[in-house]
Simulated assay, not measured.
Amino acid sequence: MARFHPLQVAAVDRLTDDSVALTLTVPAELRAEYRHAPGQHLALRRRVDGTEVRRTYSICSPAPDGEGPSSLRVGVRLVEGGAFSTYALKEINIGDELEVMTPAGRFTLEPAPGLYAAIVGGSGITPVLSIVSTLLAREPEARFCLIRGDRTAASTMFLEEVADLKDRYPERLQLVTVLSREEQQAGLPSGRLDQRRLTELLPALLPPERVAGWFLCGPYGLVQGAEGALRELGVDRARIHQEIFHVDSGPTAAGVTPGAAHSTVTARLDGRGGTWPVQEGESLLETVLRNRPDAPYACKGGVCGTCRAFLVSGEVRMDRNFALEEEETDAGYVLACQSHPLTEQVELDFDR
Rank of each mutant, 00 (worst) to 15 (best):
A2C: 08
H5T: 07
V9C: 02
A10K: 00
L15M: 06
S19C: 00
A21Y: 02
L22C: 02
P27F: 00
A28S: 12
E29M: 00
A37Q: 14
G39S: 02
P62D: 09
P64Y: 02
D65Y: 01
G66T: 04
V76E: 03
A83E: 15
N93T: 08
E97M: 06
L98Q: 04
T102K: 01
P103W: 01
T108M: 01
E110K: 13
A112P: 06
P113A: 15
P113D: 11
I119S: 08
I125N: 01
I131Y: 08
T134P: 07
L135S: 03
R138Y: 03
A142L: 12
C145D: 08
R151E: 07
R151W: 03
A153R: 11
A154T: 09
T156W: 04
A163M: 09
A163N: 11
A163P: 04
D167M: 03
R168A: 14
Y169W: 15
P170E: 12
E171A: 13
R172A: 13
R172W: 04
V176D: 07
S180K: 06
E182F: 01
Q184R: 14
L193V: 08
D194S: 03
Q195H: 02
Q195N: 04
E200R: 14
V211S: 11
G218V: 04
Y220A: 12
Q224H: 11
E227N: 01
G228F: 07
V235R: 00
D236S: 08
R239F: 13
R239W: 03
Q242L: 05
F245E: 10
H246M: 15
V247C: 03
D248G: 03
D248Y: 06
T252F: 09
P258L: 05
P258R: 10
T264V: 14
T264P: 06
V265F: 11
R268L: 15
G271F: 09
R272Y: 09
G273H: 07
T275R: 12
P277W: 10
V288S: 10
L289D: 09
C299N: 08
K300F: 13
D319N: 14
N321Y: 04
E328V: 02
Y333V: 06
E347H: 11
R352A: 11
R352P: 09
